[in-house]
Design a protein around this nucleic acid. Structure first.
Length: 447
RNA sequence: GACCCUAUGGUCUAGCGGUUAGGACACCUCCCUUUCACGGAGGUAGCCCGGGUUCGAUUCCCGGUAGGGUCGCCA
């Protein structure tokens, strides 16, 4: 059987991290089985759904690298698409829904009620065969027992989610529905409709939800709920995908950090977990740091430059060789690109800002006297590079009979405005002798 | 209120009747080191509770409890 799975988001203006994870699991299953991954836009709420909102989804999936085999090519519902089961926007499929409604009415499975159309639901328990949690026997709730039938077309003529979802899965020949566990109990309704249409329901796999660190439901406003957060924060999409794949799924042999090819190869439905997972931003950041450290130099350079520019740093005022030398000293040091402006902004600033409190402890009279000696020794240097700087500072420290740290810390603070940063010797070489002298002097003069 | 799912350190998880309960993140200590980061060596910390079944339960069953989900003319 050729596997056909789909991701069917509603364009709400943002892509929820849980939605991204659902998309990922569907994509992984399609790639693992050699099946087809379909993107369908559930834009039945015409007032709220805009092309911009659809674009957010398209961009989000592309950023994650989740390419779809069938679905929209553009955010325009009437625009181009790929695949034979279109249109892939529900707003364009009204004729199909109308025919299916007629079919149900002809079969006596649907009827009009106060202007709306309702589906005739049985009263018996429905067994939902689920690939993740096993057979689930779903009884009617007390409210449903009063009236098990439910609306499938609103009185304004718009078909509702449960109905269009089933019709589209049927028409698009979906074989496996991989979706959030929040849909589990409603699956009874879906199965009943598939039966009413006289076809077999697809296989279901309800995956656990992603919760906040405190165990509550992750909603739009919660930290990290929107995929855009990770784009803005400069995360590596490969790291985000890797982390997401580990939420609710566990590969064998304690594998965690894996290339996407390995995730695809290992991913399968039986290993999906049954319990919800809490989102751990700290672990994502760790994983992202691992990816960042292993990034090829050229990619690191372009992504770092982007991070500086989007933070408003005018890199273009500096020679390309200077920019790339500056960025090179940050490789392997920062965990995220978003840290870069704070970490290495001193490379691109006219003056460094020094916290008065920190200055008070580091720029003591004794330290400044030593700093002056080091400054003069540097001044005499004709060849100003990391190696000669290191030799000079070590010689000065020896001459003064003090620990290296007593020279290094004030020097770093004067040159960068921070107590931590890239390798001091290399950073000094990059900013160059004139700037180093200027910054040291400004500290010495102020004292 | 009813119905459904779930339950291993703070977090993500391995485990599928007998284990010194394994790994990862985080945290702590030490080492390395020009700061930070990385790396290396250690460490603290866990099977929700109560009944069964069994020679033996983290593991199987039942009941609690707790968390999550659903019961819309939202998706």
């Amino acid at each position: 059987m050729n596997v056909r799975v789909r991701f069917a988001p509603s364009p709400t203006g943002y892509l929820h991290i849980g939605g991204a994870r659902t998309a990922l699991f569907n994509w992984l299953y399609a790639r693992h089985t050699g099946g087809t991954f379909i993107l369908r836009i559930e834009d039945t709420d015409t007032a709220r759904n805009t092309q911009e909102a659809t674009d957010v989804i398209l961009h989000g999936l592309r950023w994650l690298g989740l390419d779809w085999d069938e679905g929209p090519a553009t955010p325009d519902p009437k625009g181009a698409s790929k695949g034979d089961c279109g249109p892939y926007f529900q707003s364009q499929r009204n004729d199909i829904y109308r025919k299916r409604i007629e079919e149900l009415r002809d079969k006596g499975m649907a009827y009009e009620h106060e202007g709306a159309i309702k589906f005739k639901m049985g009263r018996d328990a429905v067994v939902i065969p689920d690939l993740v949690v096993g057979d689930v026997r779903r009884e009617l709730t007390d409210r449903e027992a009063v009236d098990p039938d439910f609306v499938i077309v609103r009185s304004d003529g718009q078909p509702v989610f449960h109905f269009v979802n089933v019709v589209d899965d049927l028409e698009m020949k979906i074989t496996h529905v991989i979706r959030g566990e929040d849909h589990l109990t409603n699956t009874a309704k879906h199965i009943a409709m598939f039966r009413a249409f006289g076809v077999e329901a697809p296989k279901y796999a309800h995956i656990p939800l992603i919760l906040n660190p405190d165990g509550t439901k992750m909603s739009k406003r919660d930290l990290g709920a929107s995929l855009q957060t990770y784009v803005d924060e400069g995360f590596d999409p490969a790291a985000v995908v890797n982390y997401l794949s580990l939420l609710g799924w566990s590969p064998k042999e304690n594998r965690e950090k894996m290339p996407i090819e390995e995730i695809v190869q290992r991913f399968d439905l039986p290993q999906i977990l049954r319990h919800n997972a809490r989102f751990d931003m700290t672990k994502l950041q760790w994983l992202d740091g691992e990816y960042l450290r292993e990034l090829p130099d050229d990619k690191f350079q372009t992504m770092a430059a982007d991070a500086f520019r989007s933070a408003g740093v005018a890199l273009d005022k500096f020679p390309a060789s200077y920019v790339s030398a500056a960025i090179a000293t940050c490789k392997g040091k920062v965990k995220r690109f978003s840290e870069l402006p704070a970490y290495a902004g001193f490379y691109f600033a006219d003056d460094v800002k020094i916290d008065p409190a920190v200055a008070a402890t580091d720029f003591t009279l004794d330290n400044l006297a030593r700093l002056k000696k080091f400054r003069d020794a540097l001044d005499a240097l004709s060849d100003f590079n990391a190696s000669t700087i290191e030799q000079t500072i070590k010689a000065t420290a020896k001459e003064l009979g003090v620990k290296l740290g007593l020279l290094i810390h004030p020097t770093r603070l004067a040159c960068t405005g921070s107590t931590s940063g890239p390798s001091l010797y290399h950073l000094m070489e990059v900013i160059g002798k004139p700037t180093v002298m200027k910054r040291l002097d400004s500290v010495l003069v102020a004292a």
